[in-house]
């Protein structure tokens, strides 16, 4: 466990702020930047880095969902159903993380970070909405107000088993690696399951709090979560994602996406190399 100093807390606060604002601007969550920094640059054990990152993931999920609750973008029913799968995946991931070597987790992180970069670069967006507010959305579908079309739109959920499978994998990787897992769920829900991107993102962000808690509790119980460092990271990420969302509208995200994809490929290679030693 790293020794807490005021300098270390300040460094983690700043890194949290940068990760949080990048996460908010790019829509990928900040964990994928925070974990490699804590593990590779500050030299924290992987489990300690993942535990700190998971607390920031929970805080982001709670504050983002508190802000979007009531806007009908979060599909609560679908979220609660898929949480059964993400929490199970996360519980198993948290247990597995205690048993496998750090080098294996680093290699897995390398793979996932490269995958995140690819998804970010190629992200497809399917609209998936039906411009008819009277059509029946089914048990799991929903309606929401879409500004682009200026009215209520409807969507139906398709291929539910795929959504459940993707949620399980996302939950598993979330607590193994200390990331939110939205980057796995959102493209799957959007491309395969008929859910519009914004509803998929809001629902995923809503689920992530419960998912990450199932994993974070295990790290916490094992004494791998240092409260002072978690506090610094959470406050940093909160500040970062708040400013990212606030000023994101004015920034050109395209160039940033390309640059951050490059950063992710580098982080991926570094994790992979470190894990190979």
């Amino acid at each position: 466990m790293p020794v807490v100093t005021a300098t270390l807390a300040l460094i983690i606060f700043s890194v949290g702020a940068v990760s949080g604002s990048l996460g908010a601007l790019l829509g990928i969550g900040g964990g994928v930047f925070l974990v490699p920094f804590l593990n590779l640059v500050l030299g924290f054990p992987f489990s300690v880095a993942a535990a700190i990152s998971l607390t920031t993931v929970i805080a982001t999920s709670s504050s983002v969902s508190a802000a979007s609750a009531g806007k009908q973008l979060i599909n609560m029913r679908l979220g609660m159903l898929l949480e059964v799968a993400t929490a199970a995946g996360s519980f198993l991931g948290g247990m597995t993380a205690q048993l496998i070597a750090q080098s294996v987790l680093q290699k897995l992180f390398g793979f996932v970070a490269a995958g995140v970069a690819l998804v970010m670069l190629t992200r497809l967006q399917r609209r998936n909405v039906i411009l008819d507010p009277t059509i029946d959305p089914g048990v799991l579908g929903a309606r929401y107000y879409e500004a682009e079309s200026g009215g209520m739109v409807t969507y139906r959920v398709k291929r539910l088993p795929l959504a459940i499978g993707a949620s399980f994998v996302a939950g598993n990787l979330s607590s193994l690696l200390g990331i939110g897992g939205g980057i796995i769920k959102v493209p799957a829900l959007n491309a395969w399951c008929g859910i519009p991107l914004r509803a998929a993102a809001a629902t995923s962000a809503f689920m992530i709090g419960v998912t990450a808690t199932a994993g974070a509790v295990i790290y916490y119980g094992r004494g791998q979560l240092e409260p002072a460092l978690a506090a610094a990271a959470v406050l940093g990420v909160q500040l970062g994602s708040w400013s990212g969302m606030r000023f994101g509208a004015f920034a050109s995200v395209k160039g940033l996406k390309l640059m951050m994809a490059a950063v992710l490929f580098i982080l991926s290679a570094m994790m992979f190399l470190r894990g190979g030693r």
Binding site: V84, M95, Q98, V210, A214, G215, V217, I218
Partner: peptide, 16 residues
Amino acid sequence: VLLELMASAAAALVLN
């Protein structure tokens, strides 16, 4: 979902 969260908490105590 609640039971899964409880299982995580219980596992944390046992592992500890």
